[in-house]
Design a binder for these strands. Structure first.
Length: 595
RNA sequence: GGACCCGUAGCAUAAUUGGAUAGUGCACCUGACUACGGAUCAGGAGGUUGCAGGUUCGAGUCCUGCCGGGUUCACCA
């Protein structure tokens, strides 16, 4: 890599000129900003201590030495403390001819190493998926692909939260008011149906509370003692005791939800290597709690509940078992973490979970450490920001929750309308059109969400998300389709450019900047994987598409009379299209041949 | 109240992790197809990076204090 070459030779240069050894961190090589001449820049400010000269003089001296001693350097200029190098065209062309034909350019092969486990999605089986889940699913899936692209062995894992008081609530409501309704009889998607009864429970529960308050109870005890909640709690205890009737109902209703989720997952293109269910793992959590009690890491209160005292770590006490002996969220998560470690012996455990659970994961790591699990330090909470709507947060009570299925439907309709309005492909069959609309609508949605830094909260503006112009998925898909169109025409003309080894005498500006962008791709993959950030890949894909479109408008390709230039540009076009395809692939976005 | 996170143009977002004159898109205005796809491209306008200090050759980025917003500290998950 040219950056390494420059860094190494800069070190040698400092030794030769100033007789001093420099630490690697002091040699800062970065891309030259476009408004200046050059390809790469050495920042000399940190080296002034050694040269004991002014910035300009130091840069000038070093530039001369490096020009004389480094073959790849074709020239340099100095602006203040910035030493800008021109890299020889031969270097860029050598890179180009070596890599243009590689189909998986920028993607590393999987090495034999410990796997990385990525947990994401992790839905509750009491309500359908919404916009927040969409960000989680897209992010988790893409991060997993990103790590794979960076040569890691990755296991995608889903932990389905299929038991607990919240599940009992929808079960209870269905039992009371459902009158035997099911997805087949109602025509409702299973997850939607169950979600409706969860809402029903909440409504009836609230009504009970109000009644109790009118009868003179205070709010807090009313909330505790409302008969519906008591019934739900009873049901949860029965469930934990293995009551046959409750279990049967539970299995049925969960199956409805799974069938519904599968439809949504399939459409989104989301998949998993392994699915855990908390109903199968929560007991392991309980045994860990027992272990912690024996080790005196935890303690029991008079009412029988079990706690971990974290006040020594600046946190509060954390409950691990309720007084009635049932487990809580943390109990289960301790168990599933242990199980996952035992299953895979992973080098890293990545949890894709929203930032409202930062505290939870801090506590989880801490408790596991206290239990003597040294692998707890390999837990990474990929804490992503919330998705907000232009008017504020999503609130189910106010009906502002954006349903995942509905959103995809809307995007699909927009893709259809937009394509039909342009009227380009009346020759497509219905199936081809459907495929295209699906590709474009999902491309728009995925790109819109993934282009934002995962850590940051984002605003989801339905209007903008379905826009197909500017910094959007369809813009990049369009660029890809446009290139493929050119390649098709070249093939029809019988041009055999892909083997061509002749190059134009001098690179045009846009040709060179395209090559340099392509050159960056492997490093971007590296950085993005390091940061768990598909956003960096998305930004790269956009930059590349934009750069190509500029190149395309400035230079003719197929009708170029200089055949060396023509073939070179065709090769560059194909290389670009393949790289766009790879980058978008990491985001889970397919790119069409025509659109 | 304690802990943590976030404030960049009307809106949405970048910034090579401390580097040069803070980029890009949407919206707004002006232009470009009898050359390969106009879902494109070129140009214009829009900024005291919440405020005030500090650290240094250099701060959107690090430190301190304010202002504004959010999350969390549940026998919810």
């Amino acid at each position: 890599m040219i950056e390494n070459i420059l860094q190494k030779s800069a070190t040698e240069c400092v030794e030769a000129l100033y007789g001093q050894h420099v630490a690697k961190q002091m040699i800062q090589i970065q891309k030259t900003r476009p408004e200046f001449e050059g390809d790469l820049t050495l920042v000399v400010f940190p080296l002034l201590r050694m040269s004991k000269k002014a910035p300009e003089a130091t840069a000038q001296e070093m530039g001369e030495w490096m020009l004389a001693n480094v073959e790849e350097i074709a020239g340099f200029n100095v602006i203040k403390g910035f030493l800008n190098f021109n890299i020889s065209e031969n270097y860029w062309l050598a890179f180009f001819s070596e890599n243009k034909g590689k189909l998986g350019y920028g993607l590393k092969d999987t090495k034999d190493s410990q796997p990385i486990v990525v947990e994401y999605s992790s839905p509750n089986t009491n309500k359908p998926l919404h916009l927040g889940h969409i960000r989680n699913n897209l992010l988790g899936w893409s991060v997993a692909e990103l790590l794979k692209a960076n040569g890691k062995d990755v296991k995608k894992v889903n932990l389905v939260n299929d038991r607990g008081i919240h599940i009992c609530k929808s079960m209870l409501a269905w039992q009371k008011w459902g009158e035997g309704i099911n997805p087949a009889s109602s025509g409702l998607k299973g997850d939607k149906l169950v979600g409706d009864y969860y809402v029903k429970f909440d409504k009836e529960y609230k009504a009970e509370i109000e009644t109790l308050i009118e009868q003179g109870q205070d709010r807090k005890s009313a909330e505790q003692q409302a008969p519906l909640l008591q019934e739900a709690k009873t049901m949860l205890r029965k469930w934990e005791d293995g009551d046959a009737e409750v279990r049967k109902l539970w299995e049925n209703m969960n199956q409805w939800v799974y069938d519904g989720f599968d439809v949504t997952y399939n459409r989104m293109g989301i998949d998993f290597d392994k699915i855990y269910h908390e109903s199968e793992t929560y007991l392991l959590g309980k045994s860990l709690v027992k272990e912690g009690l024996e080790k005196a890491v935890f303690f029991r209160k008079d009412d029988g509940s079990v706690w971990c005292d974290l006040s020594g770590d600046g946190l509060d006490e954390k409950i691990l078992l309720r007084a009635d002996g049932t487990s809580v969220y943390m109990t289960q998560d301790l168990g599933t973490a242990q199980l996952r470690y035992d299953d895979f012996k992973p080098s890293d455990l990545v949890y894709v979970v929203g930032n409202e659970q930062n505290y939870h994961f801090e506590v989880l790591e801490l408790i596991l450490t206290k239990l003597g699990k040294s692998w707890a330090e390999n837990i990474h909470h990929l804490s992503y920001g919330m998705v907000e709507l232009p008017h504020g947060k999503m609130k189910s009570r106010e009906g502002t929750v954006v349903d995942a299925d509905d959103l995809m439907d809307e995007m699909y309709q927009t893709a259809k309308k937009t394509t039909e309005a342009l009227g380009k492909f009346d020759d497509f069959t219905d199936e081809e059109s459907h495929q295209l609309y699906q590709m474009l609508s999902l491309g728009a949605l995925k790109y819109f969400i993934l282009k934002v830094d995962p850590k940051k909260n984002m605003t989801f503006n339905p209007q903008e998300s379905i826009d197909f112009n500017g910094n959007t998925g369809p813009f990049i898909q369009y660029t890809h389709a446009r290139i493929r169109s050119i390649i098709r025409k070249a093939n029809e003309m019988g041009l055999t450019f892909s083997d061509s080894l002749t190059y134009p005498a001098k690179l045009e500006k846009k040709e060179k900047s395209l090559i340099k962008l392509l050159y960056d791709f492997p490093q971007i993959v590296d950085q993005a994987a390091e940061a768990y950030s598909p956003a960096l890949i998305a930004n790269f894909a956009f930059d590349l598409a934009k750069e190509y479109n500029q190149f395309y408008h400035e230079h003719i390709i197929l009708k170029e009379t200089n055949t060396a230039s023509r073939d070179f540009r065709l090769g560059l076009s194909l290389f670009t299209a393949n790289t766009i395809q790879s980058a978008m692939g990491i985001l889970g976005i397919q790119v069409p041949e025509r659109m």
